[in-house]
Design a binder for these strands. Structure first.
Lengths: 240, 240
DNA sequence: CGTGCCTTTGATGGAGATCAAGTAAGGTGG
DNA sequence: CCACCTTACTTGATCTCCATCAAAGGCACG
């Protein structure tokens, strides 16, 4: 089974066998973490780049009030923070949500690999652009979408992202997020998320169960969310 | 008078005279735009990189409902979208807010400059990381801060950003944003922004007038906002 | 077989949207 | 210089969405 990092990047640029071999080698330094382990905390000095291989993680920040805001979800294949070593300290924390297997890639390894493999560099840059697009989409959701639209939009996004790493099956996919975590990501309370989920379930659009989502009516869900997948850039420019 | 792009990048990496000369040359293809001109629209194929030299711009998206969400402000010195050519189409639009002078830098020029001037490359990557930090901060604001906190936080951010390009003077700075635009950026209505501004004015923290802000009590404003400037990364790592 | 965490449901209050005017300031043409 | 127009700002009344508080049930895990 190919690793999800390679799988994701191969969707962002043409990779040769040589490129693939380099990627496989790059993620060979792996560690297993228990759920809720912080990979790095706000204020820490950035270290190596993390690549999620199994499980989910998130970027988050705790406010003085104690409230938490999740700013991004990281799923298998996602890498954090190319070039992060340029900064003196992290402005947010990264935590594993589920038990997770994570690889670390040093700055030197990364630089060498990107210099020797331009396809990989291109894929990494595209991945970063997509991540920025996702952040912008989150800003739009938080600013101008209702609670139900926000939930539906997030589920659409996560479904497509899971799809590109091959972890979906006919309208269903694993979503190891508690309602509390969804609330922290969408800027709501867990109680309200719960009501919205009930609403969406009754509408027949989707149903969230412990650990997985069933998208019973994809068309309706997309319609509720006002979802346009363009920001995920699944269709990239051919010749650059 | 040195151009603001050079000024901003020189705060992000040590630049030699040679680097500065290259930057000055890079932004020599300039054009003037009238207020509200779209530099590029959602769906367009990405072209050259834009560098704002005078005036302000913003990234935004229009929802099916007609609502607008602004996702970023661009002020003099800010560049848009390094590597954007890797994507097939824009997932958002960029519009000039005021009359503005904007330079365009082709992908080839940019690549040549970054290859020949590693300091510039480092500064550009740092700038991109800061921009990502700003987006994350916006997500936090939208998700977990009250209207007054959001406004105060944005003003703090814009003040510091304006400060690094030298366009502030003792607690006052130019802010050419209408209340409608602030509303579109902060996910509120113009009416509500107006009330919040009144509140902030009466509290003595700050006052917004046509075209400029007076920060009468910086300590109070920072306190209202819960502002921590770490995400702007004004202190960068020395040796990388 | 508890004992926590997570989910579900109800009741109530508040922040902010919406609707509806009205005021002030700048721009333009006569 | 004045009448007109446009754009931005200000204020009030009402309504909606979502947060908050409270409590009970369910599921997983030790």
């Amino acid at each position: 089974m190919i690793n999800p990092f390679t799988q994701k990047l191969s969707g962002l640029a043409e990779l040769t066998d040589d490129d693939v071999a380099a990627l496989e080698k790059a993620v060979s330094r792996q560690r297993q973490y228990v759920a809720r382990h912080d990979l790095i905390r706000e204020g820490d000095e950035p270290g190596p780049m993390f690549v999620i291989l199994e499980g989910w993680a998130c970027r988050y920040k705790i406010l003085p009030s104690g409230a938490r805001q999740i700013m991004a979800f990281l799923m298998p294949g996602d890498a954090c923070d190319l070039h992060i070593r340029l900064l003196a300290e992290m402005d947010h924390s990264i935590q594993v949500i589920t038990p997770a297997k994570v690889a670390t890639v040093s700055k030197e390894e990364m630089q060498a690999m990107m210099a020797a493999h331009p396809n990989i560099a291109r894929a990494m840059y595209s991945a970063q652009l997509v991540d920025e697009g996702i952040m912008r989409a989150w800003i739009v959701s938080m600013g101008r979408r209702s609670a139900a639209e926000r939930v539906a939009h997030l589920i659409c996004e996560l479904y497509l992202r899971a799809h590109t790493i091959g972890s979906t099956g006919n309208g269903e996919f694993d979503l190891p997020l508690s309602q509390t975590i969804l609330a922290d990501a969408l800027g709501m309370t867990a109680v309200h998320i719960n009501r919205i989920l009930k609403e969406l379930r009754l509408s027949g659009a989707m149903a969230l169960k412990r650990g997985s989502v069933i998208i019973s009516d994809p068309v309706k869900l997309v319609q509720i969310a006002g979802f346009d997948e363009n920001y995920l850039h699944r269709r990239l420019r051919q010749a650059v």
